[in-house]
Computed example of a mutant assay.
Amino acid sequence: MEQRSYICLNCQNPLRLEFAQRRPDSADSEKKSETVITEALTGHSRNLMKLISDAQFPSDAPVCNVSFTFLKTICFFIPIFQDCSDALVKEMDAQVTTLDDEVKTYQTYITYLKENHPTTAIPELKAKLQNVADEERDLELQLKKLLCEEEAIDTELQTKRRAAEASSETSTELWKKYRDNLRQVFDDQDELHSLESERQYAEVQHRKLIDTNVLDLCFHIWVDGIVGEINGFRLGYLKEAPVEFTEINAALGQIVLLLEILLERIGVQHHELVPVAMGSHSYIKLRRNGNDIENYALYGQGTPLSGSSGIDAGIRRFLQLLEFLLKELKDRNKNFKPPYQIHAESLVDNGVKYNAVMTLNTDVRWSRAMALMLTDMKAACAQCDALRAPI
């Protein structure tokens, strides 16, 4: 009997095969068996249980200590080191048990299906399944379409988001510019209001200055009782209230200066007489044909009304200039009427003449004449201011 060397497919140990009846000596069978065993021994993927189940002869699936009955022929593989048949049988029994459980489960489910789902509804269920499959396919197509749309929308959203960020930055810059410009506008408005207030204040002050008679401010004339005064200097003399010539000379210098200003203000000049303001030594100049003829002093010394003052001629010339001024003012304003009329060297008050010269005059009458003359001067100041062109 021919002996071959085999290896257990499970433990890979050498086996000795004893045949009770040899398998048919066929070249094809021998070649096939060797090919299968070679595949098993070389580690090709092959199911051991399937290999044993498909074996027709013991040599087709050598395993330790396992017996096969094929056509009432018994053969044994005698293991040299260990037996593997028990483990294989146990595994096969476990698989059979598992398969029996699965068969029972499937049988139970089949019974349940038969009881609850009769076979008459199978075409309907197949149609419904087909509809569901078609719907699923349509939904998949819609899903693909929606995914494409979502991708396009995401792309557009990203583009718009970048544009929005750029627009936000631009908006921020514009807002900053607007804020700065608005602050500048507010500052300019505040400055404009301040300038407008200053302008209005300046306009009010200017109007006040326009309405103010500068001559009244510069030459304050005041008559209290009999004796009058100009800029604080008394122009009069009473025995009970005597006034020195120094004060009278200063007062006469003030009225000469005022007369000179009034003539200049209305733009006229006497053809012969010229007032010359020299403070306490003022005088009236007589000029003819451009030549100075004589000076008439308006300042004296000694005791007033003593007859030796030497200012009577100057007072007469002053009254001539004052009368000339009042006549010029009346020519410009027909409604103007001097408070007191001048006749030669006297002033008239209610038909009473008061002589302005000191010679052969009383202190009361002379003081009254000077007060009347100061009143005419004050009226002339007011009329000159009224004739001023409006600004």
Score class of each variant (00 low, 15 high):
K353T: 02
Q56H: 13
N249H: 04
N333G: 01
I80V: 04
T69V: 08
K144N: 13
K208P: 00
K378Q: 11
M377C: 09
A121R: 06
A20I: 03
C8R: 05
I78Q: 14
D25K: 01
R288G: 03
L88K: 08
Q12F: 10
L372F: 10
I110T: 12
D385K: 07
T170N: 11
I7P: 00
T303L: 08
E165R: 12
N213C: 08
Q12C: 08
N65W: 05
E149K: 15
V364W: 04
A121G: 02
E2H: 04
M358T: 07
K337V: 07
L129M: 04
C64R: 07
K104R: 14
Y201T: 12
R287L: 10
H270Y: 10
H44W: 02
N289C: 02
L9E: 03
L51D: 12
K160P: 00
E165M: 10
T35H: 09
Q205S: 08
E39K: 12
E91P: 00
H281N: 06
L252W: 05
I7C: 02
Y109H: 13
L15I: 14
F70W: 04
R23P: 13
G228I: 03
Q341V: 00
F81C: 09
E196H: 06
A121E: 15
T98P: 00
I80M: 06
V352H: 06
E140A: 09
L387A: 08
R183K: 09
R137I: 12
A55H: 11
D100P: 00
G253V: 09
R288P: 01
K334A: 11
A250I: 04
Q56A: 10
E136Y: 15
L262E: 05
F324V: 07
S45D: 07
E165W: 03
L372Y: 05
K327N: 15
Y283T: 01
R199Y: 09
A250K: 14
R265T: 08
A371C: 07
A250C: 12
D376C: 12
I293F: 01
K72Q: 15
V63L: 13
E345I: 05
T35G: 02
T170E: 03
E165P: 00
E124H: 04
E203N: 10
A241W: 01
T69Q: 09
L174C: 10
D86V: 13
R179D: 13
A277M: 01
E150P: 00
L238V: 08
S67R: 11
E91H: 08
Q189T: 06
L192E: 03
N116I: 00
L129E: 03
F318L: 14
P339G: 02
K104S: 11
H206M: 05
V243E: 12
E328Q: 15
L88F: 08
E34P: 00
H270E: 05
